[in-house]
Design a protein around this nucleic acid. Structure first.
Lengths: 192, 192
DNA sequence: TATTTAGGTGAACAAACGTTCATGTAAATA
DNA sequence: TATTTACATGAACGTTTGTTCACCTAAATA
């Protein structure tokens, strides 16, 4: 399907552009220019600028949900579940760093009612993580913590990845990152 | 100084607006409207929309630098320095949550050469944190870690604060957050 | 009193924006 | 061969944008 290929090339190009300049600052003419065509042509591939953003954001959001659901439904231990959550974040960063960066930086540009849908999905995701931490606390695998603070702090440890991964030409070793972050999350920086 | 008061009221109002809608999405007419005046009047307080952003960003950036310099120049232990860095981040979140949110979300909208200046300052800040972690590793206070990953992971644990603090009407207890995050950073979530 | 200053107005500007339209071409399909 | 399809164009649209201008008013200052 030559259309599919072309459309995907278009999606990839505009994705990088939006990442560099931000969604609002990227104009349809910018996108056209980096594809060596005229503005009007862009509308052969996409309905509107807004739907472009929606495609990216809900696409990557769904991937996160699919991945975490598999983990939660498994019968792994709480610790193992947290390790797996770390892994899927790093996997997705390697496979789709630009989509991930968009997820963090550009969701504000969604309009209602899509914005509310997106935020609701995000809360659901956070709650899934929260449930794993809670489970682990109740099983005494994890220490007693404020569950809200622990959830946000934990998720934050994974939120800088895309930044370094989209910028650097030299890619950091994902396995190394996974080990280092897991170690950080489970036992911190202090020498015991 | 009635001008100072008025100008500060103007700065505060536009700061919140920009946080809600994003810098690009906030128009000068939006700002005027939320001040119950006309657009032209806004230019009595500020040179341009761009300089408005610069004022905020470099203002809060300077505060972070001033604070961390005091810590680094002290003769506290590495662990104590990290604890103090956590504290200043939380202090600033309490005092200036909106400026902090801007620092995280809107720096992309700076234009050259201010953008480069800002990014250079940020790298300097990260390097200051890095030096504390390195110092602690060499003194065997901290475990052996990849210094880059440790720095970014540590700083990330502090980067979600503003989000919750600007949104919620009920403020979380800063002292509690400080303790929880310190515990997370130094010894992780595992029950030892 | 005369004058500077702080605060405020409405209209207008040139530029940039997302989007549409009528039209064209070359290849794939029927 | 006839027709659909994918890809492409340039001009134009209505809006919105940041910013400027000439002008106004009331209070503080000289």
């Amino acid at each position: 399907m030559s259309k599919m290929t072309k459309r995907e090339r278009f999606l990839e190009t505009s994705l990088k552009l939006i990442n560099e300049k931000g969604f609002k600052a990227t104009t349809m003419r910018d996108i056209a220019h980096s594809l060596n065509c005229e503005v009007a042509n862009v509308y052969n591939y996409i309905d509107s600028k807004q739907s472009l953003l929606e495609t990216y954001l809900f696409g990557i959001s769904n991937e996160f949900h699919a991945a975490i659901d598999t983990i939660i439904d498994s019968n792994a231990s709480s610790e193992e579940k947290i390790r797996l959550i770390i892994r899927i974040h790093i996997d997705l960063m390697v496979k789709k760093p630009y989509e991930l960066a968009l997820l963090v930086n550009e969701w504000r540009n969604l309009k209602e009612p899509k914005l509310s849908t997106f935020l609701a999905e995000r809360i659901v995701y956070e709650n899934k993580v929260k449930s794993v931490l809670k489970e682990g606390m109740e099983a005494k695998d994890f220490k007693p913590m404020d569950i809200e603070i622990a959830t946000y702090t934990f998720l934050s440890t994974l939120r800088w990845l895309h930044d370094k991964y989209t910028d650097l030409p030299i890619k950091i070793n994902p396995k190394e990152i996974e080990e280092q972050i897991s170690e950080f999350v489970f036992s911190g920086i202090s020498k015991k």
